[in-house]
């Protein structure tokens, strides 16, 4: 998640501040966003390797109850495709911000990724958060992605979104979302984020072009 969300922002900063290649990429015949997406896919691949290693360490040394025979492969496949799509969309959104920022904005992408981590239910259930933060979590595709992957890999793990004291329970009356609900919510939130990312990136690109931000290096 971190690699995908922060990776595209770093790609912009890398190319502009370090390699000073962003202006050449920008004037090349390729579509700018496609090049950036390519960089993002590479970062996601690196992140996947990290995720596999974390899972392996968890199973081997931390006693995670994992049984390959119980994996819900269809749910896993759909959740991964939709989730990675949403992660890259959020990455594009952050890249749109990084095109505009000056000075040392290297920590910005990671800060956003860290903040989303809070409301994604990755390390604790959303129900411990205040209701407004739970609401943010429910409209973030990352929460639904985590829920889908967790449900597919660890069917008996408790839900991070549901629970009797959760906002999800208050809104729907269900203790926890079904697999279909998770995938539907992931699709819906993913579409919203993709639309927002597309609009934001195009607008940021135009503004950067107008103001000459593409080749402005700003190290402090």
């Amino acid at each position: 998640m971190f690699s995908g969300v922060a990776g595209l922002g770093w790609a912009i900063l890398d190319d502009r501040e370090r390699y000073r290649m962003l202006r050449y990429v920008f004037v090349s015949p390729s579509d700018f966003v496609v090049v950036i997406l390519g960089r993002g896919v590479a970062r996601v691949a690196v992140g996947l390797a990290g995720a596999i290693i974390s899972l392996a360490v968890g199973i081997a040394f931390l006693g995670v109850d994992f049984d390959p025979a119980r994996i819900d492969w269809p749910v896993l496949a759909v959740a991964m495709v939709l989730g990675l799509w949403a992660v890259i969309a959020i990455g594009v959104l952050i890249a749109a911000v990084c095109i505009q920022t000056r000075q040392e904005s290297w920590q910005y992408p990671e800060a956003v990724a860290g903040a989303l981590f809070l409301v994604s239910g990755a390390v604790f259930p959303l129900s411990v958060l205040p209701p407004f933060a739970q609401a943010v979590g429910l409209i973030s595709p990352l929460s639904w992605w985590m829920e889908g992957v967790r449900r597919a890999l660890l069917p008996h793990a408790p839900s991070a979104i549901g629970g009797t004291t959760s906002l999800f329970h208050d809104l729907t009356g269900a203790v926890e979302p079904s697999a279909a609900t998770v995938l539907l919510a992931l699709s819906a939130t993913g579409v919203l984020v993709t639309l927002a990312a597309t609009l934001a990136f195009r607008r940021s690109e135009r503004r950067a072009k107008d103001l000459g931000l593409i080749d402005r290096t700003t190290g402090s």
């Binding site: 904005s105 920590q107 910005y108 903040a115």
Partner: peptide
């Protein structure tokens, strides 16, 4: 923008 990105977001982490 650092006020938001350098203070508020890291606090959320």
């Amino acid at each position: 923008s650092w006020l938001f990105f350098e203070i508020l977001l890291p606090f959320m982490t």
